[in-house]
Design a binder for these strands. Structure first.
Lengths: 153, 153
DNA sequence: TCCATTTAGTTAACATGTTACCTAAAATCT
DNA sequence: AGATTTTAGGTAACATGTTAACTAAATGGA
């Protein structure tokens, strides 16, 4: 099998950096939008997931929002203090707690929905629908691929 | 012009989240590698840029490493305290300071170079060279495209 | 049943992300 | 030159990222 010669890519052509840069570009207008609501992008992600998929426990929210448990633990505490979510302990498994979005939390979603939709459509149009879907497919493939093991040299 | 109907994408098909997930996947083995050196991924990025492109001022490093100035300011302070970089004030512009990688800093690069190269090659092979380059092109296009303005609704 | 293991969630400690504000120096304008 | 604006860099304050260690509860054996 023909193997490409091993060479560390220049930081100018580095995939991790490219992923970061493009994410910054995409998130900038969303953060601008959220600042008016006093929400961080992570809090917004949690609310959107609770709104879209309904009540769930912390572990499931962390998986869907791509957050680590320690971060999520603080975020849920903060959202609960501000009345945007409600915690309920699970009766069957007393370790678990189910989180529900409150009417006030849902109101934040409703308030920003039109603008968020417009922002998402903007960068989709920027690439074109076909290339946008291709990009999403490539990213999904990268994410779902086999874990790259650490090789001790 | 035919416009796609506006619809907020599900969080399962959201570009910002996909960018984050794939970045996590790609960075995981790199973070594993760096832990042995006691470096964070941001410190590693700064050292790599200084090693590849030579001495530069903080603003330029921030641009290349995709870091905000307050973060970089702390990172450089920490790297300088540990002897991995050296600061020198610019003689022509006394606001500016030039940062240089030290021999000890370069040693960290050398120590991790083989393994970092292997990790980069692994995820390149995972997608295949052609799809990997396509992904980089799409990300670059997304990043360099026009800033998406915030529309007040 | 008893014990070891796993899982859900939390907390601590430290680094970075993010916004706002600040200082000094350079650049620009008049 | 003198006033204004811009730029380089720093600090503060708070939120999140990251690893490690911890508690409590569930699970899986022997």
């Amino acid at each position: 099998m023909a193997r490409t010669k091993l060479q560390l890519p220049s930081t100018r052509r580095s995939l991790p950096i490219a992923l970061m840069r493009s994410r910054e570009k995409v998130m900038a207008p969303i953060r601008d939008m959220l600042r008016a609501s006093g929400l961080t992008e992570q809090q917004w992600r949690v609310l959107r997931i609770l709104s879209e998929f309904g009540p769930q426990d912390l572990t499931e929210i962390a998986r869907q929002a791509c957050l680590l448990m320690p971060s999520l633990s603080r975020i849920i505490r903060s959202l609960a203090q501000n009345g945007l979510v409600i915690r309920a302990s699970d009766t069957k498994d007393r370790r678990r707690q189910t989180v529900v979005i409150s009417p006030a939390g849902q109101q934040h979603i409703d308030d920003n929905l039109v603008q968020a939709t417009q922002i998402a459509a903007n960068y989709r149009n920027q690439l074109g629908a076909e290339r946008y879907e291709l990009l999403l497919d490539l990213l999904t493939e990268l994410e779902q691929g086999p874990a790259v093991p650490v090789r001790r040299v």
